[in-house]
Amino acid sequence: MRTVKKIFARWETFLVLFLVLEFVVFGAANPKFLRTNSIMNALVNYISVCIVSLFVTMVLITGGIDIQAASIIGLTSIIEGVLWSDAGFNIWLAVLCAFAAAALCGALSGFCVAYCGVQPMVMTLGGSFLFSGLALVVSGMSATPAYQGISGFPSKAEDGSFVDFRFLGKGNIAGIPSQIVIYLLLIILCVWILHRTKYGERLYLIGVNQQAAEYSGINTRATIMSTYVLSALSAAVAGTLLTSNVNSAKADLGGGYTLAIITAVVLGGTSNNGGKGSILGTVLASLIICFLRYGLPLCFGVSTQNLDLYVGVILVAVVLGREIAGRRMISGLFRKLRKKTA
């Protein structure tokens, strides 16, 4: 009985129930919703948010916040495009350079947050301006007009299947889109990092009490900085996949994802005060939002332009409900304690 209670006290259980409910309701309203192909397509369309939110979770667990990741998506995309088409680099070398640039961006913000003591929100706000600006500057160096986007990435095999760079975004591995395979691998990597290594434990400890973590011999500053580098690198992965998928390198790819990423992380149960959260929660939450955005227009004819309203209402309802329920639980705990002492 107690284990049952414990399972229901966990936030992830609630998210799973919500996800199942979504499938039941949408599936009943329109059986087309349950087609495997369309489900995978929906996931591919939302994959950037899913991938970046995994690593932004780590930043939030240390008590920081990262609102610059979305602008790094565009920056990596345009760096890859310009290096490949204008500088004549090999595409994989261009990807490598873009990853290095993203890591530098993350390191810059991480350094300022960890070593100079700037508030994370302010620093990454500045970073989001800077990196989206740099993306525009880089796209100005290209011979291709910025609004067109650099296209024509390699390449398609003769039988119409995608190989080389485009395989990342369009290919299939055993019938599953390669983007989803990469997402699954990243989930496993994140779960391992956060829940199975010492590094992950340190992240939680820093989030709970940075001073205590510092005194217990953890190099808190380097650890905090590393989380920003990781989230920037995940944005680079998302940027590369997006470029490869749409076959176009643009400076403004991923522009509107900032709030979506934070929403996914927070709905997943990660507290922005640090010390709390899990990868599983983030994954479930991003899937919930992803399928809401896919199911509402398909099954209930909601205009795709106005999806934010419903996603917003659900977010508000969920956080409110959770806060109220949490408070009742805490007050119940106090009542129990009082009874014990009395």
């Binding site: 916040i65 929100m121 709030l259 934070i262 929403t263 927070v266 507290s271 922005n272 005060n273 205009s303 332009q305 106005n306 934010d308 309203l309 419903y310 996603v311 917003g312 209402v313 977010l315 508000v316 956080v319 409110l320 806060e323 408070r327």
Partner: peptide, 20 residues
Amino acid sequence: GVPSLIFTLGTNSVIRGILF
């Protein structure tokens, strides 16, 4: 007592939807 960033993120989408 919802963290302000989260709550106003939510109301941001809701208000934008009402505008729509």
